[in-house]
């Protein structure tokens, strides 16, 4: 019975945590709607899996008299959902890295292979018991083929971790994305099941998702609520990254906004700038976009397009470009940009 209580309590905690996270996540002001939906979907699936495991435990220990077939169907649905969650986890990480729906669509046929295999095996298992089965007294048995389910989930979790680490080295935008929230569910999902035999995976997922929520909140400290751009605090952090040599800025575009809807202006600026640009609101009317390039023609081209888009909407903006001087260090350059604002 100890096993029953541990399973039920950990999953009830996971369920409560997930439900709380859904309520918090729904209020999160995330610019990217797809990311928000994926995140909420992950939490909902975690809540569903926690509920199912609790139900399974009740059936296995005879509290709910659903018999061996009821237990088998529940367990089958659970295995599919847990693997599906691992797939969505991978998809979420991929989307966080690239923010490209097309990229996901193009690679879905490869990404889906492990989950498709698990689904097919589970359906076959319903009629043959080749992976797991229940005896009449609800004793659960597992065959060595069950390892396919664990491997599929491991592929997704390990894959997402390795993928994120690899991309973090190439893409400086990801430097604030901590891998802690990705390690925790992996630990619970794979290791604890083997050491404790308890179905603690939803708790691991819920804790991982909670860490992600904290990360999102911390990240939002660096954002200006009105425009969605970064704020002065981000610029201060950027200087530390520049000192460490992780970040480089050689040029900047400075936008002095006229009167008008700041949110609309921010959308117009965002539409013209490259996706990876760091755009910071330094003051009420002053926005700066940093660039790796020192080429004034490049900055001019960007500035011209922003000016044109403002003109089309009857709004006013003045655009200036600043480039790093020959003997000026990147930190001095950033200081000069911030100094001009005071």
């Amino acid at each position: 019975m100890n096993g029953f209580y541990v399973t039920v309590y950990t999953n009830v905690v996971a369920l409560m945590l997930s439900l709380g996270l859904i309520a918090l996540a729904a209020k999160l002001k995330m610019k990217d709607v797809i990311e928000k939906r994926l995140y909420i979907f992950l939490i909902s699936s975690t809540a569903a899996s926690a509920f199912l495991i609790t139900l399974c435990a009740n059936v296995e220990y005879g509290i709910l008299a659903w018999g061996k077939y009821g237990a088998l169907i529940l367990e089958t649905i659970l295995e599919m959902i847990l693997t599906f969650i691992a797939l969505i986890w991978f998809v979420y990480v991929d989307y966080r890295i690239f923010r490209s729906p097309d990229h996901l669509k193009r690679n879905m046929k490869f990404i889906n292979i492990p989950v498709a295999l698990v689904f097919i095996l589970n359906l076959i298992n319903l009629f043959t018991g080749i992976m797991f089965y229940y005896e009449d007294d609800l004793t659960y048995h597992e065959t060595s083929l069950y390892i396919v389910c664990d491997i599929a989930r491991l592929i997704y979790f390990m894959g997402s971790l390795v993928y994120l680490e690899w991309q973090k080295r190439k893409d400086k935008r990801l430097r604030y994305l901590s891998v802690k929230s990705f390690i925790v569910p992996m630990v619970f999902f794979v290791l604890l099941i083997y050491f404790t035999s308890y179905a603690t995976s939803p708790l691991g997922l819920a804790i991982g998702l909670a860490l992600m929520y904290v990360q999102n909140i911390n990240y939002m400290c660096y954002q200006d609520g009105e425009t969605g751009f970064y704020n002065r605090l981000y610029m201060e952090n950027l200087k530390k990254d520049v000192e460490k040599g992780v970040y480089d800025a050689n040029g900047a575009l400075v936008f002095e906004l006229g009167d008008g809807d700041r949110t609309l202006m921010a959308e117009l600026i965002t539409a013209q700038l490259p996706m990876e640009s760091d755009t910071i609101r330094l003051g009420k009317d002053r926005i700066v976009t940093l660039a790796a390039v020192k080429d004034r023609s490049a900055l001019k081209m960007l500035g011209d397009d922003v000016e044109m888009s403002f003109e089309e909407k009857g709004l006013s903006v003045s655009v200036n470009s600043i480039t790093r001087k020959k003997k000026e260090s990147p930190v001095e350059f950033l200081d000069r940009i911030m100094e001009n604002d005071r």
């Binding site: 013209q272 490259p274 990876e276 790796a292 390039v293 080429d295 023609s297 490049a298 081209m301 960007l302």
Partner: peptide, 13 residues
């Protein structure tokens, strides 16, 4: 033009 801006921003000419 958007691609060219991306290239210029990253210093790929």
């Amino acid at each position: 033009r958007t691609f060219v801006k991306e290239c210029l921003f990253k210093g790929h000419k």
